[in-house]
Design a protein around this nucleic acid. Structure first.
Lengths: 341, 341
DNA sequence: ATGAAAGCGCTAACAG
DNA sequence: CTGTTAGCGCTTTCAT
């Protein structure tokens, strides 16, 4: 015995007819809104399930002027960093009825603008997006959207609405201090070529400030383009050490290339952290399994995701200054001399 | 001179009034549909931009009964594997006007059901979802949705509509053949505890079949729960070798734990691939930077994403048998004896 | 506790 | 090339 099923998507009306209850009441049951007698509730639920009815949120959203979507706009998914942020976001959104929708910009402001336009056209309940640098058009769109906008990862800059993140200037500065305290003086930097990686740039600026305050200057830099990988970390390390063999420290703009550099130095038989010290940035899981623990800074990714989500969901109120500044945490590892001390 | 802006979201009507053009024509301009004179087009575009109008896709979708969304449902984002698949999907969707929307199930059928229900309620143009094992309710929803459904990653099983993937049975079988051909006989397996990781289970089944056909049996297995990491790879390797010290080969259910195992064996000073051989699965980038190249099988992740997207977008027609079976490709690496030969 | 009517903002379909 | 008229499938609001 099969239920005759039209090839047209089912509507509330179909459930209404199948159950002998008005569309309105069916709607109430399906949304758990208002009082409905147990009996009719039962009838409706059965009918809906038997038919295989799936509500139409397009129509619902239009009628109610509310959409349970949160736009989450990030530069990349292959970065290891952003899946962690998303984890924090989902975890915190899970019990709110809100659903994250992910957009990826590939670090391009033009793409960011397109992605935002597209997402805002779905009238989401809030926006979480990475970074504080956005095109004028993007800023205008967001400011006019009339919904909570949380910019994440970075607190160095002007926010549109609320900021949740860490100061990358500070992270760079503090790493410089640690390295200097450990006695390193001939220091190199390996990082992305930075037209659009603003946070990496800020770390470098902070890092150089930190060095400068002790009268130290970077001896060498090595930049790369495209995604990060262990292999690139190796190649870049090979290159920078070929150019400047007497470096005694390498600061990497992220853990992935840092790990590659670490493996390279181990292969070469360098004494770490004696002959050369190393540090990365982010605090990713990957570092746990390497032969030597790379020093790094925990960028508080999951917390950032959580706090941002809480703000968008209305679980937290934004602070008066509209900035939630988390503390980037130094993780000593074994690649900086007496860093534990 | 500022434009007075209402605190209410702008509508087509606002643009219509500002430009002195009918709503309908405004709509045409904004969607590049139908013929509109250059002059009016210009007027409309200017008005829309000045006001900062963002179309309402909720209303548009309801009116047109078409939504440019493709639901992409995957088990996890932190798996390294799925971002690659998504890359293939986006790349191929980019010029179609279709937009992927990502849902994550955490390997739970119940969550998958919820995610699907939620996504289908947005009436997407198509669905791409990982795996062929789904709850009865999920299958019913998908079958009734009246849209293309592409199940990806795996071709061993019954599809709802179209399948794009590789045979994990075959991947396991072929790896067994390679290992046996290289002369290994005392073989162990390290993998996820598999209530829901069906593909890993199929690889294991295929692997054991392959071994059995040469009269060889697995000597030891070591299972783990939760996400994969280098550290877990190390721990599991330590454990399995403690239990079965005379193993001469370890087959890992993925590259991440395989890489952890590899680093462990290097640390211990084992002769690889002489004393012990190793192999993983997936063919992730990460392997490129390790001290020794881990043998693995390329799971064709990006291709799978691309082909699935092409089907959903209507760029490709589904084959008569509704199965697009890609070839899992053995990548020799340096962790199997004379594997290159 | 349930129902009827109106309309959310847009686009299909048809005029002109 | 441009405008008019009806809805799309729900939920809001107001009755009962």
């Amino acid at each position: 015995m099969t239920i005759p099923r039209p090839r047209r998507p089912l509507t509330l009306r179909d459930v209404s007819e199948a159950s002998g209850v008005s569309e309105m009441t069916v709607s109430r049951v399906l949304r758990n809104r208002g009082d409905v007698s147990a009996a009719t509730r039962e009838k409706v639920l059965t009918a809906a399930k038997t038919l295989g009815y799936v509500p139409n949120k397009i129509a619902g959203g239009l009628a109610s002027q509310r959409v349970n979507l949160v736009a989450v706009v990030i530069p990349s998914l292959s970065n290891l960093v952003f899946p962690d942020v998303l984890g924090g976001v989902s975890a915190e959104l899970d019990d709110t009825g809100l659903q994250p929708v992910i957009g990826v910009t590939h670090y391009s402001p033009a793409r960011e603008e397109m992605v935002l336009y597209d997402m805002l056209s779905w009238r989401p309940s809030g926006v979480i997006l990475a970074g504080v640098e956005h095109s004028k058009a993007s800023r205008a769109m967001l400011a006019n959207a009339g919904i909570p906008v949380v910019e994440i990862m970075d607190t160095d800059g002007e926010g549109i609405d609320t900021l949740v993140g860490i100061s990358h200037l500070r992270a760079g500065r503090e790493m410089a201090a640690r390295i200097l305290a450990a006695g390193y003086r001939r220091i190199g930097f390996v990082g992305t070529h930075m037209p659009e990686d603003h946070r990496a740039k800020k770390r470098l600026v902070g890092f150089e400030e930190g060095l400068a305050s002790a009268g130290v200057q970077l001896e060498a830099r090595e930049y790369y383009q495209g995604g990060s990988s262990l292999l690139k970390g190796r190649e870049l390390t090979d290159r920078i050490l070929a150019r400047a063999p007497d470096l005694d420290f390498l600061y990497y703009s992220n853990d992935m290339i840092g790990a590659g550099g670490l493996l390279y130095c181990i292969d070469k038989g360098y004494d770490i952290p004696g002959r050369i010290g190393l540090a990365g940035f982010n605090g990713v899981d990957l570092l746990d399994g390497l032969p030597v623990r790379l020093a790094t800074t925990d960028a508080r990714r999951v917390d950032i995701g959580r706090r941002a989500a809480r703000l968008v969901a209305g679980k937290d109120m934004p602070p008066a200054d509209r900035i939630v500044a988390l503390t980037p945490t130094f993780m000593p590892g074994d690649t900086i001399r007496n860093a534990g001390a």
